[in-house]
């Protein structure tokens, strides 16, 4: 794990959002937000799921297992 510093005011705002939820900490909340934002920012960088996989092939297999009618 690495540390970053947040302005105390931002930290406090996140603390209020975390309260009463199952986010264990401000750290977890911030990580969640950044993972989401980075996901969209990095889309198309070629580092994502293998797009060459045929969606129909996956769905046929789900159908085999009875997941799709």
């Amino acid at each position: 794990m690495s540390s970053v510093e947040l302005p105390a005011e931002v930290h406090g705002r996140i603390e209020r959002r975390v309260e009463g939820t199952d986010f264990d900490s401000v750290d977890e909340y911030v990580t969640f937000v950044l993972e989401e934002v980075l996901h969209y920012a990095e889309s198309g960088s070629g580092n994502m799921t293998d797009e060459a996989v045929d969606e129909d092939e996956v769905k046929d297999r789900l159908r085999s297992l009875g997941y799709i009618d």
Partner: peptide, 17 residues
């Protein structure tokens, strides 16, 4: 409540993107 907050964040991130 955590699930609802996550869904809000995901939706906002997608909208902005």
């Amino acid at each position: 409540r955590g699930t609802a907050e996550r869904e809000r964040l995901v939706s906002r991130a997608k909208t902005v993107a």
